[in-house]
Amino acid sequence: MADITAAMVKDLREKSGAGMMDCKKALSETSGDMDGAMDWLRTKGLAAAQKKSSRTAAEGLVGVAVSGTVGAAVEVNSETDFVAKNEQFQNFVREVTHIALGGVADVDAIKAAAMPSGTTVADTLTNNIATIGENQSLRRVKRLEVAKGAVVPYVHNAAAPGIGKIGVLVALESDAPDAALQALGKQVAMHIAAAFPQALNEADLDPELIERERAIAAEKAAESGKPADIVAKMVEGSIAKFRKEHALVSQLFVMDGKTKISDVVAKAGKDAGATIVLKDYVRFQLGEGIAREQSDFAAEVAAASGVPQNREPEPTA
């Protein structure tokens, strides 16, 4: 059996919102696997409303930039938030974003591209690591373009113009006036930042994600003790609900909680006198999906000195 540490239980509590003993049992049942423990808690109905997997797990900055009908987003990671406030690091993120905007939409290709200084992005990054004294990496990039219309940017928790913790791009294809597209794009981008859709349409959702949810739904439904045919309908109902809640166009607009995003876009097009098509989007949140090492300095000192840690008291009956 895996050694379940207090730090692991604390991490799972923060991610799930479940109680200490439930988190400890979940980790024991799954041999310390964090994702498996989250699923275990959800099948038991013990996890709080889904904590976004986009919890910050690394530092750095996300950059977004737009030029006409083209937009680009990049993520550059650092070890600490202190570096994200460094002007040299911020300028690097801006320059890399504009390189992506210029047509380079692949991480390896960007690393080989030239910076305004004449050196490559890779060499500049190496120099930054040496001068700033902290490891940094160019993690990902995405570029959007429409034939006509607008790509609208939005940065949440901005550290400076065009850079921050969450960067969003919304691609709208239309002959509608630019003012109408910018207004709609800003609203949809703010929704995306808050609602964290997994795909544009239900058909675009990751099949592995759907199967994982199906397994969770099946286990929960089976515990109801209902006949197999009813269980099957319960599972399909859960999956249909999951699809609607995680595809952007079928999500309910966060600003009113009742209108689907597809209807928000359709109404904006009607008001502007031209059809508006929501073609694509990008949502980069700093550090999403990156496992960051946890360091408990007090525990390390205690272990080195042979002094036992203070433990959370076990709940009494």
Rank of each mutant, 00 (worst) to 15 (best):
L27G: 07
T119E: 15
A57P: 00
L61P: 08
K85T: 06
V231N: 04
N77T: 13
T80N: 08
K260G: 00
A6C: 05
A72P: 01
D178I: 12
T126S: 13
C23P: 12
T316H: 02
K10T: 12
K258R: 08
D229W: 04
T120V: 09
N201R: 15
L46K: 15
E314H: 11
M1E: 12
T69C: 07
V9H: 10
S137I: 02
M190D: 09
G167K: 06
F284D: 11
G71F: 06
V70D: 04
D33C: 11
I290T: 14
D22Y: 07
G164T: 00
V66T: 11
V62K: 10
R55K: 07
R243F: 00
A272M: 04
E314N: 11
K44C: 02
H191L: 01
A113H: 08
V155E: 00
S224H: 05
L144V: 01
E300N: 12
V83T: 12
Y154F: 10
Q90I: 13
V277R: 14
G289M: 12
A203F: 08
H191E: 03
D280E: 09
K51T: 09
A228I: 06
G63W: 08
N310R: 10
G118C: 13
A158I: 03
I129T: 07
G306I: 08
V70Q: 11
I4F: 12
S137T: 10
K25F: 02
T43N: 04
V151H: 00
I129W: 03
G162A: 05
S78C: 13
A47I: 04
S224M: 03
K220I: 00
E288A: 13
F297S: 11
N201K: 15
T124Q: 15
L144W: 02
P227K: 12
T120W: 13
T316W: 01
A317N: 10
M255T: 11
T30C: 09
V231P: 01
A299C: 14
A266M: 08
M21T: 13
V235M: 05
G149F: 02
V188Y: 11
F82D: 11
A215Q: 09
V96R: 09
V74S: 05
H156W: 02
D33V: 08
A218P: 00
R139G: 01
T97L: 03
D263G: 03
I166S: 01
I163Y: 03
V141Q: 05
N91R: 15
A49K: 15
R143M: 00
G19I: 07
K258C: 01
E202M: 14
L101G: 07
L61W: 06
V282Q: 05
M115V: 11
D123M: 14
E314L: 07
A37W: 12
D3G: 09
V235F: 04
A272L: 10
E173A: 11
F253V: 03
D178Y: 09
I129Q: 10
L205F: 07
